[in-house]
Design a protein around this nucleic acid. Structure first.
Lengths: 229, 229
DNA sequence: CCGTAAACGGACCGGCTGGTCCACTTCACC
DNA sequence: GGTGAAGTGGACCAGCCGGTCCGTTTACGG
């Protein structure tokens, strides 16, 4: 037995040190990406994790795979927090809290959302998880709307974009005073809350497809285009 | 002519072809940065402009200088549009329009705001222009507040961050359906409009200094510095 | 026209990046 | 403890990047 597990199965067990190193890599990379953006070098990451570059590339076939792994991990966490929020009795507050939490977590994380945006189509796993995330958010928004806390003409995608907006705005003026962030969050709250709605939003509440389809149309154009002078 | 102009003065006149090439470079770079982000190579830019790399580097001592030049140009345009908006009789609408315009212009421009964020401290000229921009925006917000269209507890910086947020959110999910953008703009409008204010914003209206000071604390790490000029 | 300084462009450079390879170490099972 | 496979790490590679240099071309005043 002993090599009992079929070799064709996914790796059954990793050697303890291997697993530990993988974790270290993930942690170091997460931290460094968050602090310094997506283009920190793999060498630096490996060093920070206390392993050699070879180890990094055995665990993650390419830098992109590493990024993808981190993104997946983070999104799983987000989904978990979303599910938790769904349990709350006050859906409105739960939603606002979730938004605030998300921004707070990403506030110092320059790169994570970037990574999602850049890789989400490239990787099936990420697509899948992303749609789960939207699903949870959608349920929460729905619940908050039913509770009368949130205006009824918005969708989870709208909310997601608001969150991303705040994250990005904050990130790009690095380390703004925390008050500024709180104010932005208050403004978001004011934007989506049910009371004080004066005019309906243009268009109709977008769904996940509205993002994916859009992305597809321009996927081809990216690398091409020679000069033509 | 007289080489009348002192040689130490700024270049008085450029040779016609030189000026034309500079313009081409600027245009090509603007377009490419907007479409494909800040890390398109200088070679490609030069090629697209139909000149050699040498020409590029004579006009702009480094890639960063090129970026800075573009940013300055764009910001000047923004300021002009802001001044125009100030003339309007309906300050509220003028402000909303300006926001919508700004987002619209940047919608396909992945990189411009990035560039501002990354270079604004490094380059005195950009700092100066940026503060002018805030000034104009401030006047407009003020006027809209006096007209009762905009809630009184926000500042130009708040508005700027909102604009940036929408731009970034849109940019990172590249080419989202235009409806989604309009909805975000409506949400912003709803957030900052005077009617329907339910609760005051936390903290106090931030000023330009709140951004700069924040930036300064971490400025040490910046890449600039060598560029004395 | 002609002379010349300005402008040009692309060959070239050093450095850095993501990614590969393989001699060596370590774990885990007997 | 012995043994072999799994795991390791750093030397190494190719390609790309921003930036320089210099022989050639071009605009433009006379």
């Amino acid at each position: 037995m002993e090599h009992n597990s079929h070799p064709m199965e996914e790796r059954r067990t990793m050697r303890a040190d291997a697993e530990r190193n993988r974790r270290r890599l993930l942690d170091a990379a997460t931290q460094m990406f968050c602090e310094r953006g997506l283009d920190v070098g793999v060498g630096e990451i490996a060093q920070q994790a206390g392993v050699g570059r070879g180890t990094l590339f055995r665990n993650f076939p390419s830098k992109e795979h590493l990024i993808a792994a981190i993104v997946v991990e983070r999104m799983r966490e987000s989904i978990a927090r979303g599910r938790e929020a769904l349990e709350s009795s006050d859906a409105g507050e739960a939603l606002f809290d979730l938004i605030e939490q998300s921004v707070g977590r990403q506030q110092t994380d320059r790169a994570l959302f970037d990574a999602i945006a850049e890789t989400w189509l490239a990787n099936d796993e990420i697509r899948e998880i992303h749609s789960q995330l939207i699903g949870v958010l959608d349920a929460l928004v729905q619940k908050a709307q039913d509770a009368g806390a949130v205006r009824t003409d918005i969708s989870a995608v709208d909310v997601l974009m608001l969150i991303k907006g705040v994250c990005e705005a904050v990130a790009s003026f690095q380390h703004v005073n925390h008050d500024v962030v709180l104010r932005q969050l208050d403004l978001v709250r004011s934007a989506i809350s049910a009371s004080g709605v004066q005019r309906p939003l243009r268009g109709s509440p977008p769904s996940l497809e509205d993002l994916e389809q859009a992305k597809a149309t321009q996927g081809a154009a990216a690398p091409a285009q020679a000069a033509t002078a």
